[in-house]
Design a protein around this nucleic acid. Structure first.
Lengths: 123, 123
DNA sequence: CCGCATCCTCCTGGATACTG
DNA sequence: CAGTATCCAGGAGGATGCGG
């Protein structure tokens, strides 16, 4: 055992026991991983396009997760005031700073899935 | 947009929409991050030592998280049949394979905390 | 020392319906 | 097209007490 210094972290009114917990809380949520993944690969995406890219997500959850990511400062939301509405989402600098993490999560998961799981294709 | 190939992953009866979600599910849980962190730095740790290293965790949660990580194959649990009991936990090869991820989570979180949060020391 | 068993609360996320 | 609003079920996680 090294130092026994105990501390906690406070960010925007939330409390964390360690930086790992903090980071995980920012990218956790059932759909944030895959949403980030699509935004990494696509520069900007409309609400509609994200829905199509993630067929099993509901409108409610897509909205909810996007709002949280916006609050975290991970993404920008650009609204075009027109009818029908058009809204574009894109990564901020902070969002881009987690790309390496998301990629390593993705790679680790892919390896693990190939060794210990099964992959099913949907038609 | 690239390929529109849709799929899902099945591992041990659980289903995931993408490898990122899969990986996150393995390391998510309020205390797994900090438990892994301590096991990374200490080779083997007794139940007791983990409790002291993570003052705010309850016995129930420590047991619960350790059981899940054992089920995931991340850690070994070695029981010494003696009175009073002695149990040692250590990382498996699979557990060690996530060290780079945990470290990058930790680094990102530390940076973020320093820029956007506050760190409080407990006595 | 290292747990397990109960009970309880809150939060996440799903289903469904409605709107500017 | 891009959302709200409501309702609801299940599970995560906390508090407490007992046991080999």
């Amino acid at each position: 055992m090294k130092a026994k210094l105990k501390y906690f972290i406070e960010v925007k009114g939330e409390y964390y026991n360690c930086p790992i917990e903090l980071t995980l809380s920012m990218i956790s949520g059932k759909w944030k991983g895959i949403i980030l993944w699509h935004l990494i690969g696509n520069d900007t995406l409309r609400f509609n396009e994200l829905e199509k890219a993630i067929p099993s997500i509901s409108q409610r959850m897509l909205t909810k997760e996007l709002r949280e990511m916006e609050k975290h400062g991970f993404i920008y939301r650009k609204v075009y005031p027109q009818v029908p509405p058009k809204v574009e989402y894109s990564l901020s600098d902070l969002g881009r700073s987690v790309i390496p993490i998301i990629k390593s999560l993705s790679e680790w998961g892919s390896n693990y899935a190939q060794n210990c799981g099964k992959i099913y294709i949907k038609e």
